[in-house]
Structure formats: structure tokens, C-alpha cells
Amino acid sequence: MSDLLSIEGLRTVFRTGNGEVAAVDGVSLSVAKGKTLGIVGESGCGKSMLSLSVMRLVPQPGRIAAGRVMFDGRDLLTLPPAGMRDIRGNRIAMIFQEPMTSLNPVFTVGDQITEAMRAHDRAASNAELKARAIAALGRVRIPAPERRFDEYPHQMSGGMRQRVMIAMALACEPDLLIADEPTTALDVTVQAQILDLLRDLQQQTGMAIILITHDLGVVAEMADEVAVMYAGRVVERASGTAIFDDPQHPYTLGLLGSIPKLEETHDRLLAIEGAVPAPFALPQGCRFHPRCVFATAACERESPPLRDLGRGHLAACLRAPLEAAVAAEAH
């Protein structure tokens, strides 16, 4: 299968008062043309920093210390800045969680979309760009796009603003869209509409999507492949169905158990206690062991490698498959 993007051994570090810490620590992932890769994990697990690393937008004092980001046969990390500018927005586009803060409040949405188009197409006339921008607004199902073209962000609802962001991201018909928590700030009804829209646009344009979220419910709606991240590392990788039908890592189980389900009869949610450790205070051994209900002494010592459990399903857990480990314990 031809991968559009493949990340190999990526490591992104930050210089801090406590020395250098790794926000992304040896991550390898790939996404194929026209497919969706879901990256799941709690705040602070490194998933946003991973996507910023792909775009080479890591904020100071961070830097990419190791790894390769192969996109369409080229390593993005070795491109000159001008070459990277040509990729950004044009071939790889990004949308963010906060549709309010990512739009400029003093320009109309039309101005902002045409500005993005202008950056990658200096030859087109203004009238042509306006027509294309209105078509882009129509494509993301904004009603009356001609009127909306002249409106300001504050005149729109959160869902409409996120549609504008998507229209802007798709203006240059990118091959890859990175969506960082695109629906987290939205109502559930609007969230469902936006996910539906992203699916349809993907079918029309054949773009690949990297969807970053903390919500496995959103992943279930979208992803062909899933990577679960914890403390800067991938702890489980599987297909979009296998991660739900055959979850292997205790962290994945914790995320699944945390989702409030309508079908469930018992009231208490299966929360994961505790929080993601800070990058400068990572535990020894398996980074999840202090929060893990299956942890043993070995988990405190050994860092589990990401190993193949069959059919491309990878998990970084010494105790997987868990039912066998628990049965062995009982003896």
C-alpha cells in the first residue's frame, strides 16, 4: 500500500529548566491516500505536538531531534523553509480546535479565505478568487454562501466558524488534512454534522485525514486506522474496527470505559484514575504503569516495546493479551 505520509522514529524535544524533555518520543505512523488515521489520547500525551512536528511548526524552545517525515517521497524535515511553505496549506492543511481563535475577528471570512488562496496562487484575479471562495463555502454546506462571504466571524455560530475553517483548509485541495480536535468545542449535534461533512469531503476529494481527538466515540465515526498515544509514545496501533473489537492495551480499555454509554445500565463510569505524567517526570518502565490496574513488578522495570500481536495489530504492553495474563496469575 502506498503511504502518503509516513513518520519514522520522530522525536520532538523541549529545552526546559529540568533539561531536555521529549514531548514526542520515537513515534512511527503512516497514513495512506484517501484514508483516515485517528490519533487518540488525553491532553498532554503529545498528539498535538506530533501534528505540529509534521507541519514543522513546533513552538520555541522545542525542536525536532530525530526521525523522518516522508511525504510523497520527500523528507519534510530536510526541506528548505521555502519548500516547506509550499507544502503547508497547499499540500497539507490543518484545522484547529478553537474556530473562534483561529479566525481573525477584524476581517470578513471571505477576505480570509481568499487570502489563503492568494498565498498559493498569485496569478488568479480577485473576481476569480471570490467565486472560488464562495464555491468553497458552498461545499462545506454553508447556506447562502454569497451573503456569508461578507460576514465577520462573530456573526457566525461555532459550527459555522468551523465550517469556514474547513473551507479555508480545503481551498487549495490538499492531499492531507490534519484536524486537531475539530469538534471538541462544539455541541454534539453540530459535531455530528461536521464529522459527516468531513467524511463526504474526503470521498469527493480523496484526501487523507489525520484526526486528533481525545474521544474514541469520534474515532469510531471516522478512522480507518487508529493510534493510541500515551506520554509521547504510541501504545497501540490497529485498524478502526480492531481497536474497538479487540482492544489490547489497558490504556485503550480505560479510554473505552470512560465513555458514557447510552446502553449501559450501571451508573458508575470506569474512569482511569490519575493523569498523564509530565514529560519531565516520566515513570520508569512502562509509562502507564502507575495508572494501570494490571501492572506487575516487571512493568515498573521494563519499557514494553510496540510488538505485533497479529494482523498488524500492535500494542506496547508486557501483559497483552490480558485475559491470558490474568488467567496465568490465578494459577
Binding site: T189, G217, A220, E221, M222, A223, K261, L262
Partner: peptide, 13 residues
């Protein structure tokens, strides 16, 4: 109720 994302890829779409 319908809008709630379900952790179940089999009922996608």
C-alpha cells in the same frame, strides 16, 4: 440522542 458519537465503528454513518 442520535447525535452522540458511539464507540462503535460498525454503525458509522
Amino acid at each position: 440522542l442520535l447525535a452522540i458519537p458511539r464507540p462503535d465503528p460498525h454503525r458509522r454513518g
